[in-house]
Deep mutational scan, measured.
Amino acid sequence: MSIQHFRVALIPFFAAFCLPVFAHPETLVKVKDAEDQLGARVGYIELDLNSGKILESFRPEERFPMMSTFKVLLCGAVLSRVDAGQEQLGRRIHYSQNDLVEYSPVTEKHLTDGMTVRELCSAAITMSDNTAANLLLTTIGGPKELTAFLHNMGDHVTRLDRWEPELNEAIPNDERDTTMPAAMATTLRKLLTGELLTLASRQQLIDWMEADKVAGPLLRSALPAGWFIADKSGAGERGSRGIIAALGPDGKPSRIVVIYTTGSQATMDERNRQIAEIGASLIKHW
């Protein structure tokens, strides 16, 4: 067993022997301040990774656009098919120029040779490549099948209805392509620590998230040296922004954090800054 596999296998073990965790309302004060600064709703939840206990939450059962955070769930569904012998990570998928959609920095470079399922998941999570996500959605049967996968996990809230990039439209009061912070946090925890996926697939999923290259201005910008984070960000229309993450000190994750916002007129930089400040408060009061 590799060191990384050992780390993920012992996530519940280490967490069980940690000192009790206590909620700190100071972080919620910052979440509410972010709402004021952005002029928009902000949803927040913080779960203990081992027990699933909610440590703090704000608007945990209000719907927010998922945006690209759905790509972690998508690759979880792909990995479940791999575990069941219905898919192979090494299978190569070929596609054409007509398949390319807006923001496809990886797939646009491989029109000639195609990409493997493993490479597509890596591109979808680490670079948020939209064509990679659409190609992977095709392998599982489309958005409705991802929703069905989530329902089978016990998540009857999260739903995907459309493809990239239309799913980022974020129309107010439109339930399409949305989740709730509580539902997303619980589902992410199941994917990373539950028995739904094999140990190898859980490790692969967290490795992809740990290698995320496009979430630097968010929670990662607030992390002290030595902290662990595996995350996936999302951005959408109407001032929408979000991030889902597993993080913790001492090089291992111990909490799940989900943050979503929508309806702001603020710039992307300002949305990023507010999420980073929430992260800084979380870490300060850990």
Rank of each mutant, 00 (worst) to 15 (best):
Ser96Glu: 12
Ser51Gln: 03
Thr198Arg: 07
Met115Trp: 02
Met209His: 00
Arg81His: 05
Gly43His: 01
Gln97Ile: 04
Ser233Thr: 10
Lys71Ile: 00
Ser51Cys: 15
Leu218Glu: 06
Lys32Thr: 15
Glu56Met: 08
Ala123Asn: 02
Ser68Gln: 00
Ala276Gly: 11
Pro25Asn: 05
Lys232Phe: 00
Leu282Asp: 01
Thr267Pro: 05
Asp231Asn: 03
Thr131Gly: 03
Leu38Ala: 11
Pro181Val: 04
Thr187Ser: 15
Val117Gln: 03
Asp48His: 05
Lys252Gln: 05
Thr139Lys: 05
Glu26Gln: 15
Val101Ser: 04
Gly114Trp: 11
Ala280Met: 13
Ser68Leu: 00
Gln86Met: 03
Thr178Met: 02
Arg241Asp: 14
Gln97Met: 05
Leu55Tyr: 11
Arg59Lys: 14
Glu169Asp: 03
Ile243Tyr: 14
Gly114Phe: 03
Met127Glu: 13
Leu191Lys: 01
Thr116His: 09
Gly251Ile: 14
Trp208Lys: 01
Thr193Asn: 12
Ala183Glu: 11
Lys32Glu: 15
Thr107His: 01
Glu166Arg: 14
Ala185Met: 06
Pro25Gln: 11
Ile283Trp: 02
Ile283Cys: 04
Ser221Ile: 12
Phe70Ser: 08
Glu166Lys: 12
Lys232Trp: 00
Arg176Val: 14
Gly236Asp: 06
Leu192Pro: 00
Gln86Trp: 09
Ser51Arg: 12
Lys252Thr: 11
Leu47Arg: 11
Lys144Arg: 02
Pro60Glu: 07
Gly248Thr: 02
Arg238Ser: 08
Arg91Pro: 01
Ile256Tyr: 04
Ile244Leu: 12
Gly251Glu: 15
Glu102Ile: 02
Arg189Lys: 05
Thr193Ile: 03
Ile259Ala: 06
Pro143Glu: 10
Trp286Ser: 06
Glu119Gly: 11
Arg81Phe: 12
Ile206Cys: 12
Arg63Cys: 10
Tyr103Ala: 06
Leu73Glu: 03
Val29Trp: 06
Glu35Pro: 01
Lys190His: 06
Thr116Trp: 12
Phe70Trp: 03
Leu247Arg: 00
Met127Arg: 12
Ala133Glu: 01
Glu277Thr: 05
Ser68Arg: 00
Ala170Arg: 02
Arg159Met: 12
Leu188Asp: 01
Gly251Tyr: 02
Gln97Trp: 06
Ser96Arg: 07
Thr126Tyr: 09
Thr186Val: 14
Glu61Gln: 14
Thr27Glu: 06
Asp174Lys: 14
Glu62Gln: 02
Arg59Pro: 00
Arg202Val: 08
Ala230Arg: 03
Tyr44Ser: 01
Glu62Cys: 02
Ala230Ile: 03
Glu270Tyr: 05
Ala123Trp: 08
Arg220His: 13
Val257Phe: 14
Ser122Trp: 09
Asp155Phe: 01
Ala276Arg: 11
Gln86Lys: 04
Ala132Lys: 00
Tyr260Pro: 00
Leu137Thr: 05
Arg59Cys: 07
Asn272Tyr: 11
Gly216Met: 12
Leu197Ala: 13
Leu47Val: 07
Ser201Leu: 14
Ala183Pro: 07
Leu247Met: 15
Ala148Met: 02
Leu73His: 06
Asp250Gln: 02
Gly239Lys: 03
Gly142Leu: 03
Arg238Met: 01
Asp48Tyr: 02
Leu73Trp: 04
Thr158Val: 11
Gln97Leu: 09
Lys232His: 00
Ala245Tyr: 02
Gln274Leu: 11
Arg202Cys: 07
Asp177Leu: 00
Asp212Gly: 14
Glu46Ser: 12
Met115Phe: 12
Leu111Lys: 02
Leu135His: 05
Arg118Asp: 12
Ile229Pro: 00
Pro143His: 06
Trp227Pro: 00
Gly248His: 13
Gly226Asn: 10
Ser57Pro: 08
Glu166Trp: 13
Asn272Gly: 13
Ala183Asp: 02
Ser104Asn: 02
Ala200Val: 15
Asp207Tyr: 08
Gly226Gln: 10
Gln203Lys: 01
Lys109Ala: 07
